[in-house]
Amino acid sequence: MDTQDHNLKEPLEQEGLTVTQGVTTAVPEPPILEPEDDDVVPQQARAKRHVPEWFEVIWSNRKARVGLILLLFFILVAIFANVLAPYSPTDISFGPSQMPDSQHWLGTTQAGQDVFSQLIYGTRTSLIVGALGGGLATIIALVIGMVAGYMGGIVDEILSFFINLGLVVPALPLMVTVAAYSPVKGPTIIILVIGLTGWAWGARFKRSQVLTLRVRDYITSAQFAGDGTLRIVFREILPNMLSLTVLSYISAAIGAIGAEAGLEFLGVGDPSTISWGMMLYWANNGGAMITGQWAWLVAPGLALAAITSCLMLINFGVDALSNPQLREE
């Protein structure tokens, strides 16, 4: 018991407030009063450290550290793609279906584009789709889940009906159908499709979180203080479940990256997009397996695996934020 309390009594940092606070409430309140930190000393210590507490917690987790470094690598690659890539990804001036050599590290495509350059530019699409698709799904999940959980009664019944509907409708066929029949093609429509089909699980998750938080005394206290419903939901409850929200955002981003690659591989994407999914699609269509161009097929596959794993690894660190017992001391 004392152990846990000790973990909880960290001097929290101003910058890191929101996230770390989620931690404080994610575990049961200490039942017995503990002496608090003395007023003077932690404040001095606080001034000395510049890294926010939440980052320190994630960074101290070895798996998350690896994940963060990898993610930083991918982000840098995406930003400096035009510098890093040796050729333009759409340049078709090279010989078709070349094997890897010193000119083209990963060979060329059937149409004569450089595979390595495509791989580098494809990072952009995956990261953007992950960030936006995951973000859209998380925002929809947050609003629906939190309102359903907090309001209860008939509002909850109706919203829960839609959540359940979203859960039972098979997502992949739905995504394929919507993406295939949409008048425009491209990453934007894929982000929308992913966002609109992928929120249900997150909504259910947040609804149950709110159900446990809304009976806390401080919520009743806010009601007595005259705060309105929206304010209570977003200012009193949301900050307390922020680390869990981040957790589900990362999961949603992983799902979005995977779904995007999947949809494009199935051929419902815009054929002119430069992305890992599209590379896989063309590699498959171009008979990479038959011509023995292993690098064309393996490289985007490995890149996808690497980016989803790095997000997974970061999730371990975020887990430690919401559950102090998982922290590596």
Binding site: D217, F224, E236, N240
Partner: peptide, 18 residues
């Protein structure tokens, strides 16, 4: 409720930690 206020039993859960 402006006229009727409440003092809670558990000061640890009655104040929002954030």
């Amino acid at each position: 409720r402006k006229h009727v206020q409440y003092v809670f039993q558990d000061p640890f859960s009655a104040l929002n930690p954030v």
